[in-house]
């Protein structure tokens, strides 16, 4: 290619990338830099940044019990999501894969909790958990389980559990969809062959199907971890992090420290610490699971 044309082509490439890069830089990269910058200042949100306090905000974060509690709740949410949602989703996906009556209909219906807006789910479930008029307590009463009735969202003992339940309800369909997609890619001959070799159903799942699905499971775990720390809507609408901080998670804490307490520098430091922890976790999980997987199966997924 003559050099002038090559230069023109390069310029065209930059011109085509520019719009994406513009939004990417303005709303994804610049905010990260700005967040880090603000976290070195004591800032109440008014006027310019002028009281530099070095690592003071980070030091405060390491001493702050609210930070540890919020991270703890987020970690519980994450572990329960990874274990419960994924296992239930796997069972459902496997059953759909093996063949269930009317599976097309079930496929449509099972996915609904993921489709309706998260804010709507949050409102629906706060009404279901309502102590007097809520469906759950009425159902328990009707079944004669009055002793199980609770002030679900209003008591510190059950609020986190209730919020996590909604999160599971919401995430199972997505996990199921991804796992089913991966199941459908497994060659039928492999499963037939294992049956001829005398494998029972559960053994086939354990030693043939699960290893083949590992790349998908790794990927799904990473997506789930990232999403668990992104969640805000459900907790904010259902409990606003209460009662007494019992459902506080990273995002609601950052919101409160900033917008409600006007402690923006510190809020940014906390947000940045969450960012580093989540990024480290995602990296760690992918490293561990990949090394398990061995080099020969990396291609799948």
């Amino acid at each position: 290619m003559p050099p002038r044309q090559a230069v023109k082509k390069q310029l065209l490439a930059y011109a085509m990338i520019f719009p994406a890069l513009f939004f990417f830089a303005l709303y994804l990269v610049f905010p990260l830099v700005k967040s880090l910058q603000m976290s070195f200042y004591d800032y109440d949100g008014v006027g310019p940044l002028n009281s530099f306090i070095g690592l003071g905000n980070f030091a405060e974060g390491f001493r702050d019990s609210r930070f540890y509690e919020a991270m703890g709740h987020n970690l519980i949410l994450m572990v329960v999501e990874l274990v419960v949602s994924m296992s239930v989703a796997f069972v459902l996906a496997y059953f759909l894969f093996r063949g269930v009556f009317a599976w097309r209909w079930f496929n449509v219906v099972l996915f609904l909790p993921y489709i309706i807006p998260l804010a709507v789910s949050a409102v629906i479930w706060s009404l279901i958990f309502e102590p007097t008029i809520g469906m759950l307590n009425q159902l328990l009463g009707a079944l004669g389980l009055d002793s199980w009735q609770r002030v679900w969202l209003g008591s510190q003992d059950t609020s986190l559990l209730s919020v996590i339940l909604v999160w599971i309800w919401r995430t199972i369909p997505f996990d199921m969809l991804i796992l089913l997609g991966s199941l459908l890619k497994i060659p039928k001959e492999l499963i037939e062959a294992s049956k001829i070799d005398g494998c029972t159903g559960i053994r086939t799942v354990w030693s043939i199907i699960l290893p083949l699905m590992l790349p998908t499971i790794v990927l799904l775990s990473i997506i789930s971890i990232a999403n668990d720390f992104r969640s805000f809507d459900i907790v904010w609408i259902m409990t606003q992090g209460g009662p007494i901080g019992s459902t506080e998670i990273a995002s609601t804490l950052v919101y409160k420290l900033g917008f409600q307490e006007n402690h923006y520098g510190y809020a940014n430091a906390v947000a940045f610490m969450v960012f580093v922890i989540v990024t480290a976790m995602v990296g760690l999980v992918s490293l561990i699971l990949r090394s398990w997987n061995g080099p020969n199966e990396r291609a799948g997924g």
Partner: peptide
Amino acid sequence: VPSPVLLLP
């Protein structure tokens, strides 16, 4: 990137 870190900036 988790969104809490983007929220304030």
